[in-house]
Design a protein around this nucleic acid. Structure first.
Lengths: 250, 250
DNA sequence: CGTAGACTTGAGAGTCATCAACGTAAGTGG
DNA sequence: CCACTTACGTTGATGACTCTCAAGTCTACG
């Protein structure tokens, strides 16, 4: 387990509503159910295989695992990552409740990355063959799957750009902030579920650089940061720092 | 127009089969028709609105344009790119025949990037609402759309890693090589449709760096390059240079 | 033939990585 | 309860890769 500083809202560590059906799930608007009516929702619900809890360090899937299901994060958080031939780890994304995991495995039908819980976390597993059939019958489901994949595409592309360490970290914080807001948590104050090393591997920086930029941001009055507890003091200025990137993150 | 050196196979500049139906299209196996039977293929075919030719510099769509269709490249090549608030251009990808364009626009329902022809090029436009309906009725089509989106996701993620200029350029060449092979062209000898500047913006390098690495590769006997004509002399060694990246590119 | 744009090559500078040391927090076992 | 261990995070010094700036070359095309 990690540092548990007492910051008011720590969304990444909250596990609420574990037993809820899609219909009453608080992630309704972010996740696959979005836009579905009562009956269709029930049909989706019968597909869902709720799994977990996974504890920090547990793997949801690993590179090479046969692709069977798409996962929707239900509570907690996961990171997806690969390890290259030199042993360097590349973090592909951090996944909060409502996010889908495993989409890149559809094409090759086996997983291309690892997914690891950062917290005590749970997922809804959706068997892909069944989901595919159901999405043939429910246009709203099809639409939403495409929307979410499309969003992933755009987000990943954003990160692929050529930006400075400050732009990257600012965009990372701003992106987390909006995602917390979407989920009903404070956009100004939160705990990071991931280590400095994970952030660095995600942003393609050295952990030392992440530390230093955090320190610089704090000195400049942009944020307060103590270990994993972060408070955004000047969101507008953070946003202007990363406006070149267009904003968000995964 | 660009340099037209006489290299045997110059796939990016070939425009063949402009009038073919999906059924007889040579891109059959790469593009949406893959796996579809005769009747389903005909239905897909009725959706297709063939457009072009676009000439070098022509735009297929621009940032902010309303999203109406997905495009499948039919002949020639396109680049997709954005311009950030500092005026820097970021190339998101190069698109060869059989590739889909515009997928990232589904979510926000307007285009997030620009798409420009690098050559004299044509596309098949597929109205998204109709495609969505049809994909509800033809599971094979649904499967293939998902497969192609999934592939895009994986490719983009690859480029997002932290790699040296040599790794990037080697991966770029190796990736192009395999894509040409898939399309029936020589994987060892081809013309680049894009400028050094485009390559640099794609790989997040300076154009000068691209030049220098090309020169270094040539000095080391890995390639021969004269302006846009490229010959890969030592594919295995190029592959080993970028094995850290896992290989391919978009 | 001359200009424009693409490309190449060289020199210097800057950002960020690497190496290293140190501080802090949490867990273990005596 | 304290020494020890381990992982994480911070801070400093050095250096490398790549960018920027600048000049020069080549090709295409008017």
């Amino acid at each position: 387990m990690e540092a548990k500083t007492d910051v008011p809202t720590s969304p990444m560590e909250v596990t609420r509503g574990l037993r809820e059906a899609c219909m009453s799930c608080s992630l309704h608007e972010l996740c696959l159910p979005r836009g579905l009516s009562g009956h269709d929702l029930e049909r989706l619900d019968t597909l869902v295989d709720r799994r977990g809890p996974h504890h920090e360090g547990d793997h949801l899937f690993r590179v090479g695992d046969r692709f069977e299901s798409i996962y929707a994060v239900r509570a907690g958080s996961y990171k997806s990552y690969t390890v290259d031939s030199e042993g360097r780890e590349h973090v592909l994304g951090f996944h909060l409740p409502g996010d889908l995991l495993g989409l890149d495995a559809i094409y090759p039908s086996h997983h291309l990355c690892n997914a690891m819980a950062l917290d005590t976390s749970t997922v809804c597993a959706l068997p892909y063959d069944q989901l595919s059939i159901l999405s043939g019958e429910i246009s709203g489901l099809r639409v939403q799957i495409m929307r979410l994949m499309s969003k992933d595409l755009a987000d990943t592309a954003t990160l692929a750009g050529d930006f400075t360490a400050e732009e990257r970290l600012a965009a990372f914080l701003v992106g987390l902030s909006s995602r917390f807001r979407e989920r009903g948590y404070s956009p100004r104050e939160f705990n990071l579920a991931m280590s400095r090393r994970d952030i660095a591997n995600y942003l393609r920086l050295a952990t030392e650089t992440v530390s230093r930029v955090f320190a610089r941001f704090e000195k400049d009055g942009l944020i307060e940061v103590e270990r994993r507890a972060v408070r955004l003091l000047d969101l507008p200025r953070l946003q202007s720092l990363c406006e070149a990137m267009g904003g968000l993150q995964r």
